[in-house]
């Protein structure tokens, strides 16, 4: 198969970026999208041009490193899947493919298609944890968790932290990411003591990072490789309202 690539190139955060066009020739349909970029990069290297920088690591859809907007969709046209799980057989031969980074103000560009997503780490640092000192945990089966809650918790916990939700959101909102972590811990009894503080701090950090606001378009859940449901955002809203009430009304 042959493709024409329209790729965003930008040397660093300060320089001005632009699109560049490359040919990808003789690509086997079983080649993954990232492997296709590898091939193009090897050709660029041979021609003494700078290879296209893009992030990837596990290449099996779980680490969340890959972050490409392909033909106007975060992670490309096949959902649910991360960009690394996208194969060239999903594209029509001879077509032009536009590749852009995930775009949001809190994701500053590092180079070409690589962005800095440390904003997401800072949201977790603000409260996305349960304080449990190693050595002080009670026996694991001493607190039963209803299966229904445990199942909901893992559905939310499946988030791979790729940031596609914010990239796809018309408002660049990271609400789905934050909602997933808040919900995961709110569904478990172990998360109860810090429940109020957690949601308050995480939402405050999310806002401070400069993400946009949720307008319930649900574009996030459509592109989420971990199939996190936007109903967790409703859960986040509920948790937040509850926290505000508790903190303003008191006991």
């Amino acid at each position: 198969m042959n493709f024409q690539l329209n790729v965003w190139r930008q040397a660093n955060a300060k320089s001005k970026g632009k699109f560049a066009t490359y040919e990808a020739r003789n690509i086997a349909p079983d080649t993954s999208f990232l492997e296709m970029l590898d091939i193009v990069n090897d050709e660029l290297t041979e021609r003494s041009e700078a290879p296209i920088a893009f992030d990837s690591d596990c290449r099996e859809g779980i680490c969340g490193a890959c972050a490409l907007t392909i033909n106007g969709q975060a992670h490309g046209p096949k959902h649910p899947a991360a960009a690394c799980q996208l194969y060239m057989r999903s594209f029509d031969d001879g077509k032009t493919i536009t590749v852009e980074p995930f775009r949001a103000k809190p994701f500053p560009l590092v180079r070409d298609l690589v962005i800095d997503r440390s904003a997401l780490d800072r949201i977790v640092q603000a409260g996305g944890f349960i304080a449990a000192r190693a050595g002080s945990a009670p026996e694991a089966n001493s607190i039963p968790v209803p299966k229904h809650n445990a199942d909901l918790a893992i559905e939310a916990a499946a988030c791979i932290g790729c940031g596609a939700c914010a990239a796809a959101c018309p408002n660049a909102s990271a609400m789905l990411f934050t909602a997933a972590k808040v919900s995961h811990l709110a569904f478990l009894p172990q998360g109860a003591p810090e429940r109020t503080l957690r949601v308050t701090k995480m939402v405050r950090q999310m806002d401070a990072e400069g993400f946009g606001n949720c307008t319930n378009t649900y574009e996030c859940e459509a592109v989420c490789p971990a199939e996190i449901s936007a109903s967790f955002i409703a859960k986040l809203n509920r948790e937040y309202a509850r926290a505000v009430l508790q903190r303003s009304v008191g006991e």
């Binding site: 329209n6 965003w8 699109f19 907007t69 033909n71 106007g72 969709q73 046209p77 959902h79 536009t98 852009e100 775009r103 949001a104 103000k105 809190p106 796809a168 018309p170 408002n171 660049a172 909102s173 400069g210 993400f211 946009g212 606001n213 307008t215 319930n216 378009t217 649900y218 574009e219 859940e221 459509a222 592109v223």
Partner: peptide
């Protein structure tokens, strides 16, 4: 006020945009 925040949250837009779920009304 939300809309202004949202505008600020993506100073550099996408060249190509292809919505899946976000309806015309919602946008």
């Amino acid at each position: 006020s939300l809309a202004l925040d949202n505008r600020r949250a993506r100073p550099q837009g996408y060249e190509k945009r292809n919505y899946i779920k976000a309806s015309y009304a919602s946008r």
